[in-house]
């Protein structure tokens, strides 16, 4: 079964601005799905429409087979949402925030108290259960919002840039938590600017730009489509002259760094052989940016070039 089906979704604001221009999307149950796109592409609008904070102009949405136009409340009961901006009651204690949220989804107080302990512990906030939300740090507030979204144990969890502004250690622990809950069968949809996050966590991705889905495939298929990748080679000794390697685009980043662009049909071994022939010793190498990031930029650039 599909956890989410979006068909021909349009959103136009009263000022005539088109935010979504016919979005089609299908997320299978149990998937870990990423929705990527630059700022203003329409990611948050899609999420707000799914959670009913924004009304669509046209199109249809089904959550686990329940049509939003006919059974909105039933559809909403399956969703947990972690929004981009803080929307917690800053004057309420962490535990009360979760207990109240559970109540809004029909979970009795007795059960809500048990679940509150479980989910505050899972985001490592149990020791702050009696503190009011406004005393928490930014990262803690974000984790609190994740616990709040989980307390009614939704079948579909939607996270709108959940790790924005969170330090690396906490980001990693949040990733582990998300992997765990996806492993037990919860469908997760994630929007993020950290493409590394999408590549590390998700199985499928959709790229949205200017209100349209421009790519929708599995991560592995999308990475196969990556035509070029840049590598940075760190040299053991400094080099003053740019080495010339036939069929490869080479540039000097500094005396100790060389950048080489490698196409998908080319072999990295050829680069190493050429460096050896020219007496250049390599101490280490790394990808210039993450693969998905390169792909993302190439998609968006290609689309804009087409438009021009």
């Amino acid at each position: 079964m599909e956890a989410l089906i979006i068909k021909d979704l349009y959103k136009t604001y009263s000022n005539g601005k088109y935010v979504l221009k016919g979005v089609d999307l299908a997320v299978p149950e149990g998937d870990f799905f990423a929705l990527l796109g630059p700022n203003g592409a329409g990611k948050t609008t899609i999420i707000n429409i799914i959670t009913s904070l924004t009304y669509k102009t046209d199109g249809s949405i089904k959550v686990f087979g329940h049509d939003f136009d006919l059974q909105a409340n039933l559809a909403k009961s399956f969703i947990g949402i972690v929004p981009q901006e803080f929307n917690i009651n800053m004057f309420e204690t962490c535990s009360n925030i979760l207990i109240n949220q559970a109540g809004y989804y029909g979970i009795t107080r007795k059960e809500a108290i048990i679940r509150t302990e479980k989910y505050l512990k899972s985001v490592k906030l149990w020791d702050r259960k009696d503190d009011i939300a406004r005393t928490l740090s930014g990262g803690m507030k974000r984790r609190l919002m994740i616990a709040r979204a989980l307390v009614h144990e939704p079948r579909l969890l939607i996270l709108d840039e959940p790790t924005a502004g969170v330090d690396i250690e906490i980001r990693r622990s949040m990733w582990n938590l998300l992997r765990e809950i996806n492993d037990i069968g919860m469908t997760i949809i994630l929007t993020t600017h950290y493409l590394e996050e999408a590549e590390s966590l998700c199985r499928n991705i959709a790229i949205i730009d200017e209100g349209k889905i421009i790519e929708n495939d599995s991560i592995s298929n999308i990475v196969k489509k990556l035509s070029q990748q840049s590598f940075i080679f760190n040299l053991s000794n400094s080099c003053n002259k740019r080495p010339n390697i036939e069929n490869f685009k080479v540039s000097m980043k500094s005396e100790n760094e060389i950048e080489v662009r490698v196409s998908s049909h080319q072999n990295l071994n050829d680069v190493f052989q050429e460096f050896s022939k020219q007496g250049i010793e390599i101490s280490s190498m790394r990808a210039k940016s993450n693969r998905l990031e390169e792909l993302f930029i190439s998609y968006v650039d290609a689309k804009r070039n087409d438009d021009e």
């Binding site: 959670t51 009913s52 904070l53 409340n73 039933l74 909403k76 009961s77 969703i79 949402i81 929004p83 901006e85 803080f86 929307n87 917690i88 009651n89 800053m90 309420e92 109240n100 949220q101 809004y104 989804y105 029909g106 709040r148």
Partner: peptide, 17 residues
């Protein structure tokens, strides 16, 4: 205050009527 601080959204996104 729920509207201003946005925690009213907790109720609006819930399945309550």
């Amino acid at each position: 205050s729920g509207k201003l601080h946005r925690h009213l959204e907790e109720m609006l996104v819930s399945p309550m009527e």
